[in-house]
Design a protein around this nucleic acid. Structure first.
Lengths: 131, 131
DNA sequence: CTAGAATCTAGAGCCGACTCTAGGTCAAAC
DNA sequence: GTTTGACCTAGAGTCGGCTCTAGATTCTAG
């Protein structure tokens, strides 16, 4: 069941084939992709899983350079767990900070929505209300 | 009370003077900034407050074009509350989606951190590439 | 009065993250 | 046996969001 074309991987991951090649150039793949006949990329399930991790990290705001750094550590094999932890913990801080920021924004939006809904409601209820 | 230079506003908001001028060009200010002698910008507290809102919206991922759209509605005055609500609700959805995504990422990170901490604690040599 | 800091405008430059193009190879379907 | 479509590489282009430069003017402290 391992032996996916770039098109199949694109479909599965939601990335475009362009982006898949781009990510590979950027060193985001844990292992170098195997090549089949005519040099076509052949992905396996592990590649897809790893791409899933990359996608999640990207979606949470990790820059490509950091993902590459982490990928390189994984690729280098055992013995650098401390460094991997450092990268992960650093990103966790960013994620938490971002969550906090989003919460603040949510409060602001909720506040403003309440104001506008109140204003509209008032207008509906009191039909002859001149501003 | 009112009468802040661009430098003072930069200091208060954390934006650079470059960015303040850029935001103004992009139409992110609710009112056109007044000008003092020699054409220097003179901000008031209301401007700073509005910039605070813009900064929060930006930090939560709202693109500048959407902030401009919203600003234009506010600038246009009463009567478009429905449209403002639409912009706000739309962004709220994005924020909630983003929070969900961050949560998923947090789970992933926590999982991986646990693995690495366990590995360091137990000194085993499992090769891990699982998501 | 003068040096240095702050401001102005218009426009160029930069960076991250894609996204697309051109020109080519190859396999299978008609 | 040619056409179609997925794939290849190298490299150019795009876009959002700043960031900086140049050259001029103006405020401010000594």
């Amino acid at each position: 069941m391992s032996g996916l074309s770039i098109g199949q991987v694109a479909e599965r991951t939601g990335l475009s084939v362009h982006t898949l090649r781009f990510y590979e150039r950027e060193g985001l793949l844990a292992q170098p992709v195997r090549r089949g006949t005519a040099g076509h990329r052949v992905y396996n399930e592990g590649d897809v899983d790893w791409l899933g991790v990359c996608i999640r990290l990207r979606a949470s705001g990790m820059p490509l350079t950091d993902i590459r750094r982490y990928t390189e550590l994984v690729r280098a094999g055992q013995g650098n767990e401390e460094k991997r932890l450092e990268v992960l913990r650093e990103h966790r801080e960013r994620v938490l900070a971002q969550m906090h920021e989003l919460n603040e924004c949510l409060k602001l939006i909720t506040h403003k929505v309440a104001i506008y809904e109140g204003r509209l409601g008032l207008r509906d209820n009191v039909t002859d209300c001149a501003p």
